[in-house]
Design a protein around this nucleic acid. Sequence first.
DNA 1: AAAAATCTGTTGCAAAAGCAACAAAAACAT
DNA 2: ATGTTTTTGTTGCTTTTGCAACAGATTTTT
Lengths: 210, 210
Amino acid sequence: MKTDFEILNFFKELNSNCSTVIKRTFSKGETITTYIEKRAQLCILMSGTANLIRYDFNGNKTIIGQFTKDEIFGEILYPTNTNNELFVEAKESCDVLFFNYNNIITGCTKKCKIHQELKNNIFTLIMKNTIKLNTRIELLTKKTIRDKLLTYFNISSYKNFDRTFVLPFSLTDLADYLSVDRSAMMRELARLKNEGFIKKQGNKITLLIK
Amino acid sequence: MKTDFEILNFFKELNSNCSTVIKRTFSKGETITTYIEKRAQLCILMSGTANLIRYDFNGNKTIIGQFTKDEIFGEILYPTNTNNELFVEAKESCDVLFFNYNNIITGCTKKCKIHQELKNNIFTLIMKNTIKLNTRIELLTKKTIRDKLLTYFNISSYKNFDRTFVLPFSLTDLADYLSVDRSAMMRELARLKNEGFIKKQGNKITLLIK
DNA sequence: AAAAATCTGTTGCAAAAGCAACAAAAACAT
DNA sequence: ATGTTTTTGTTGCTTTTGCAACAGATTTTT
């Protein structure tokens, strides 16, 4: 499978006379897209970070997903069966590519040479996204906050080849990601620290157990 | 996007002299595949149902995913960062197609005509799988069992075009799917019934509220 | 440099969920 | 048809979690 680096480079150099792509830049707080209309949209985040946000009928805002560089998202990957309104909001300045799924499958009208590669790369990004979703499900299915945290820390240390790692986002974001109450999570973190499972200085965590 | 029916027919007729596919049948209880070795495997379930099962270090068995007809699975879609042993086990008799991801991306050596269509169909199945995973995440991120159940019921009734629907699996399986304690879920179901939110006769549920 | 907004950390209390154990019903197998 | 296994349904008790509220630290904005 291609590396993120190779794929990102492909998209950077993607010639815009290939009819299937639009490039846009968004500044912090702007809405990149919504999942309301159904137009088979696929988006690739070239730089920056963005949140997938749900406003429920009470107007409560919930962060239900986070996207970073190289990641793919868009309403075509999302179920239509909820009546919630979903928005993707730039958390910081973002460069985004927009595609249409049908154009990708059928091939663009100009039959540009790179179209085949485009398809393969999007394929690969969607597979990576699947792995990301399965990882999150693995965490969400753990029954206790402690288990969620320890599993998350294990995965992080595995990825980082080091028992010590820095969280890629704030503790508030981590609570959203694990779908637990932030204060309850902080309490559990304090316990893990007291009981000698972890060391913690700000967002830098060290796992002290296997 | 193609319908499940069209895709299933394509795979049924997939000529086996296309080098990329192997077909096998499994009877109830047999292990279809494991996610231990890394050989870029992708599997399509042609008939039957199967469970994705984890045995943790204590030997506890947990059902972490369920697959039915037309669905795609396989270790290539799953993160490598956990040291758990994962198995896909036939819950009933199953017909399964096995592919290799790299063969699909690069094209088979015989350059058979249907290879392009094969790729598109697998692409589509993976997208459907993404939607399925996002649906489950939506449920798992709900904070209470009541919220999980009501959201699940809403989605089911939406899909079924009817406030009344039959669960596609047992209540025990539903508890696994929502990752909650079965007895706690039963308690909550009883409350929802008493409070007039639902009607329930065995696995047949009717939503009585919006 | 000051003001505003966000994030971190802590705690008491109430609500929710997990666990364990058991009996009855239903499904499956011999 | 009979015995076995799985599923459903219920309940008491304990643990975990969410909620609310607050203070201090840090970051961002003006």
